[in-house]
Write a protein that binds this DNA or RNA. Structure first.
Length: 423
RNA sequence: GGAGAGGUGCUCGAGUGGUUGAAGAGGUACGCCUGGAAAGCGUAUAUACGGUGUGGAAUCGUAUCGAGAGUUCGAAUCUCUUCCUCUCCGCCA
């Protein structure tokens, strides 16, 4: 969430910038500021009462020590009213703080100055692109047909076992998955990321820390018996490693990578673009996460984008990078670049990665701070990106590399798959 | 799942109702000492919010001894709830 301090000190600027995200913040921010004034006044009253109480208690203790029972009893009388006041102020303060928090959580992150204006995905800017869109032979088919033809992925079997959106990978299909995961993890390690194996279920505090809760409550699978959530991305457990942590400035940037299965309910997105691997309830992804000094986070964002670019290039896929517009960006992000690869048989671009700088928005919730040489603690900046999400990469790989003789595996991947063709 | 023990600051570790934000030790930082280093000596070493205030100096107040609630004039210390850790038993990959 945004820091209270920033909102109160830059009110007009905040409202203006939120407009780019198509968020009308005027009313809610007015409420926040009003509550903040009330909060300060209430805390001052509470603190004064508590201080008085502490003094009285010390006095009473002294009276008892000196055997002055009468004086002690008299002083006790004075605490009665004070005690009532403390209770009133304390309750009021808690109530104000809770309300304030409820409001702050509703305000999205501020978009970076470079975020383009716009409402929809069509307004995103193509930053740059590369690779070649292949010319397919006449009988080329989409990946779901290829998956069937070569017995790589069984969607119907997944329906039987679990439901729609839970495919079963088989044979070279399964091996291709494993190869991609290892390929991505090895590349990340070589780029300086520490490999992490996180839990796949998290508690509510973690969901809250990275912003999935309460905003996207319905998008996560929830195990109600234990009140745990299946992770929608490794970002959640990995970033929460640094919840309530004060890092040493020397340790920045923190670079972590993790493979995980990802679980998403995708409520409300049935019907469109869900064919084959395009949208699943369970999928595999390798994530990269960085925690960085505020002065360096945009430099880091660029490096992460370039890193992801090297991956799609090694996989010989036609790619493009989009700078997301204000209306299409995520709630918690300040600047996001999406990666898309072209899926030649479907003849459409598929999103395979999203790389974002959250600035201190997540860190403020997480209480992830660092302390530098000046002994001051301040919030870190957090960044993350997919590197990469598997299903759509697989879709594009299958479709783009199909030949009448079989499906060609890109050179960089062959050491990982152990085979050159799917036939 | 059954029985017991415990959760204190960066770490270890005292502390069972009254200046305890918290002894002591270690670690770390700075200073002194030294040709340099070690040892030794000295000093410092949490976070959040609020008040006064300046160049984001400083200073005062409040809270925090796993978390939440309670008893009391007063709780790290007593009671309850809850989470977690450890030991033993059972069960299982």
């Amino acid at each position: 969430m945004l820091t209270l301090k920033y909102i109160t000190e830059n009110t007009d600027e905040v409202i203006a910038r939120l407009a780019k995200k198509r968020f009308d913040g005027a009313a809610i921010i007015a409420q926040v500021i009003e509550l903040d004034v009330l909060r300060k006044a209430t805390q001052t009253k509470l603190d004064n009462s508590l201080a008085e109480m502490n003094n009285l208690s010390k006095e009473i203790g002294l009276f008892f020590k000196q055997g002055k029972q009468a004086e002690a009893a008299a002083a006790k009388e004075n605490t009665i009213v004070l005690k009532d006041n403390i209770k009133i102020f304390d309750d009021k303060l808690s109530e104000i703080e809770q309300k304030l928090n409820e409001l702050l959580v509703l305000i999205p992150n501020l978009p970076h100055a470079s975020v383009p204006e716009g409402k929809h995905a069509e307004d995103n800017l193509v930053e740059r692109s590369g690779g070649e869109i292949p010319a397919l032979f006449e009988d080329a088919v989409p990946h779901w047909d290829l998956a069937k033809k070569y017995d790589l992925i069984d969607f119907e079997l997944g329906v039987k076992i679990s439901g729609a959106g839970f495919p079963v990978y088989k044979g070279k299909g399964a091996r291709l998955q494993r190869a991609l995961i290892n390929f991505f993890l090895d590349n990340a390690r070589e780029a300086g990321y520490l490999e992490i194996q996180p839990p796949y279920v998290v508690n509510a505090a973690s969901g809250y820390g990275t912003g999935q809760l309460p905003d996207k409550e319905g998008q996560m699978y929830h195990c109600t018996i234990d009140d745990l959530y299946l992770i929608p991305t490794a970002e959640v457990p990995v970033t929460n490693i640094y919840r309530d942590v004060i890092l040493d400035e020397k340790d920045l940037p923190i670079k972590n990578t993790a493979y995980s299965a990802c679980f998403r309910r995708e409520a409300g997105s049935y019907g469109k673009d869900v064919r084959g691997l395009n949208r699943l309830h369970q999928f595999d992804k390798v994530e990269i996460v960085q925690i960085q000094h505020p002065d360096k986070s945009y430099e880091t964002l660029d490096q992460m984008v370039i890193y992801v670019q090297t991956l799609v290039e090694k996989l010989e896929l036609p790619w493009r990078i989009l700078r997301l517009c204000g209306g299409d960006m995520g709630f918690t992000s300040a600047l996001t670049f999406d990666f898309e690869v072209y899926s030649a048989a479907q003849e459409r671009w598929l999103e395979v990665s999203s790389v974002s700088n959250f600035e201190n928005y997540q860190a403020n919730r997480l209480k992830c701070r660092f302390k530098g040489a000046d002994k001051k603690t301040q919030l870190c900046h957090t960044l993350n990106g997919s590197a990469l999400a598997l299903p759509r990469i697989v879709a594009a790989l299958l479709e783009n590399n199909q030949t009448p003789e079989g499906i060609r595996i890109p050179k960089a991947l062959i050491p990982y798959t152990g085979f050159e063709m799917i036939d």
